[in-house]
Design a binder for these strands. Structure first.
Lengths: 245, 245
DNA sequence: TTTATCTTATTTATAATACAATATGAAGGA
DNA sequence: TCCTTCATATTGTATTATAAATAAGATAAA
């Protein structure tokens, strides 16, 4: 990451300076640009990016709110240890992916998916409202059409999985929306080379049927089958990569 | 020039005005104070809380970063739908609890724990380093001492559960630290009336043994047993409450 | 020497003010 | 009716000044 200094070559931060700076700094922190540097003071940041101190402070406050920074008088602004970062935050997640593709990161996403999604399906079988079920059905039909060449299969797949989070009736499950979105989008980057590119329609239909039948255990098992399969593929690839060394 | 203000009308925001305002507004939003009101403009907020616009804007930006607000020129600042809130954020979680005690909320916490903790234990059995194991052991010994009257049993219990998240080797699992902390602290508020106040030592020891034995399936099962038990107790109480109406 | 206290300098925290950009809705004209 | 224009409210950005906090160094006391 390269930071221009002269006022003439203004670093493009988009139309909203605060949000632009937030994004730029967030990415720089997450990809490790500051790893063996001290994080700049407000004054220096403002000068480097050619923005006012107000903008700088607001961006820093937002990064503080996401757990990436901490600021104290005289001590300056410093980067928090990774454990403090709000990894499930939409922005932080995006910045994580701006690093080079990492099978390890994809595996970690998927391990969490194996934790979360089967139980979400189980809860959905217990709690889904009529509207929830309709949304699921629509998403599935979209998957079928996409499978026939009409539309993007990944986007339809994402919608289907998210509709189940929503149907769980527990708002905490909905928090994994971004993680799942990110995981599925990242998956195709490598899964196409190894596995089938399109999602397994029959397996997905089994989940939906179980939820429609109000059968929690079957819904859990059907979802577990799908996500755990992805995990196994990733494990196999990790082993293969290891042997290649 | 610092203007002294009448002490009577000043709302106490603590030593740090921005953080104080963040906390006050966050709580107000989460408890529903603004539910049928329009959220005030920056100017009004600044006047109401007797702080500068800088402070107001910084607090609003932090709430924006946590998904609670969105601001646009001329349109004002508005509260985001609950689904957008970063519910796993430490602050948001705390604000959620500042509402009256809710068995429903505790159940939702616990449903997520059932999703997350068993798999974390499974991964810990696979990945825990020597240091991770030592930390777990120390936490367990602290639980034993607390059981004998020396120390706080809940705090020791919390440490034990968190040491397992940490030992999973997957940083995403560590994100649930605050949720588990909150859930366990909240649990005793009602669990003491119904169940045993102190955690089940033997069941916890089983988890630790399985992880030391590097037995993922046993670790998963042992953890599932504990957390699912909590969930069942909550379910029973919810049913009892329903009948009481 | 060691400890405690005071001083200084650096950085964030807060305030106040001015103007720019943006989006809403009303007014006016074709 | 529809389009354009303009007034207006609200956030966005810049600038400057001062306060508060604290780390580190200097000084004094034991």
């Amino acid at each position: 990451m390269h930071v221009e200094k002269e006022s003439g070559s203004t670093l493009s931060l988009g139309r909203n300076l605060t949000v632009g700076l937030l994004d730029h700094l967030g990415k720089a922190i997450v990809v490790g640009y500051y790893d063996n540097k001290v994080f700049p003071t407000e004054a220096v940041l403002a000068e480097q990016y050619n923005v006012s101190r107000s903008v700088t402070r607001e961006a820093v406050k937002m990064l503080t709110a996401k757990g990436l920074l901490i600021a104290r008088p005289r001590q300056g602004t410093v980067i928090q240890p990774t454990l403090q970062w709000n990894l499930l935050d939409k922005d932080v997640l995006r910045w994580l992916l701006e690093r080079k593709f990492s099978l390890r990161l994809l595996r970690q996403f998927t391990e969490l998916r194996v934790s979360v999604e089967p139980k979400a399906a189980e809860l959905a079988a217990q709690n889904a409202s009529y509207e929830d079920l309709q949304r699921m059905k629509l998403a599935f039909e979209r998957m079928v059409r996409a499978d026939g060449g009409d539309g993007d299969p990944t986007l339809a797949d994402i919608d289907f999985h998210i509709s189940i989070l929503f149907a769980s009736g527990n708002p905490f499950y909905y928090q994994f929306q971004e993680l799942i979105r990110t995981a599925l989008k990242t998956s195709i980057q490598f899964t196409t080379r190894i596995n089938q590119a399109t999602p397994n329609l029959e397996a997905h239909e089994n989940i939906m049927k179980a939820i429609f039948d109000r059968d929690p255990k079957r819904a859990y098992a059907a979802m577990h089958l799908i996500v755990n399969d992805v995990l196994l593929v990733i494990h196999a690839q990790e082993e293969a990569d290891k042997r290649e060394l």
